[in-house]
Amino acid sequence: MSYLLRRTGFYLLTAWIAITINFLLPRLIPGDPVMSLINRAQGQLSTQAIQSLYVLFGLNKDESIFVQYGHYWAQLLHGDLGLSFAFFPTPVASVIADSLPWTLALVGITTLASFLLGTALGVYAGWRRGSWLDLVIPVTTFLSSVPYFWLGLIAIALFAGVNGIFPSSGGYEPGLVPGWDPDFLLSAVQHSLLPAVTILLSSMSGWILSMRNMMVTVAAEDYVTVAHAKGLSERRVMVSYAARNALLPSVSGFALSLGLVVGGTLLVEIVFSYPGLGFELFQAVGAKDYPLMQGIFLIITLSVLAANFVADLAYLVLDPRTRREG
């Protein structure tokens, strides 16, 4: 299992670097934007909250950077990400805890769906090269050149609004209380449909193109010719010889594309005022709420790392060569 160990080590390293970037950024850049925020909120902040922001943003100039780094880690490990200014005086951690499930549900499900759907379409487009399926290329090229959020705007203009079928903003009908009751769930699904389709359309094109190209490459491999020579059915050759192998780079590429896809989907949330991390990030940017921005960056990075780890596990199952003598 040296493969998994290596990957785990790599993710720990990445997490450490992301956290350290977060630590260093406010300390490297001149000016103390957070100081002015603290000054403005004077009187409403408890000493403990001020102390926490001092640790996060390095306002304690007397301490050496190493001591600051130690305090920083200690505070993070306690789950203290400071106070949000956009949602004053809610702690960043609880703002994130409220919005994370929305993003996980929306982005998680649509990303998975877009990967599966895009890969399947790519398999067909690559296998039936020269047929009408080649038309997917110009369409997907166009879709992948459009920013996700703009497609979202168009979707709202076309399908939502006063006489539209879908709600144009929010995560559920105002007035409902989030919970596991049918009214709320139905409303949540209805609200997430349009953003989900937007994300699906924009992110699918990448998977289609890469899978199609891999299929074209793999179709020329000897073992595919052997499969044809064996007189296997077209389906069998396509699925378990060509696609099965073409899938491998796609799965290992999943990890790398995930960061991009997540970035794009955060923006879709903004357009739809969807109560997830992207929308919070947007509000944090507008309010210059640095603690919230940094907290969201950390959480997104850690979630992407976790998703990557899952993709690695999938790869391990799919490619026998990585399972070699552990």
Binding site: T14, N22, I29, P30, L258, V262, F297, T301, V304
Partner: peptide, 24 residues
């Protein structure tokens, strides 16, 4: 090589946002 892999995995857009918004 490890550093470039790290930068590949960290979601670029949120990173760019926090860097850009910290700048004066």
């Amino acid at each position: 090589s490890a550093v470039s892999n790290v930068f590949l995995v960290i979601p670029a857009l949120p990173l760019i946002i926090i860097v850009a918004s910290t700048l004066p």
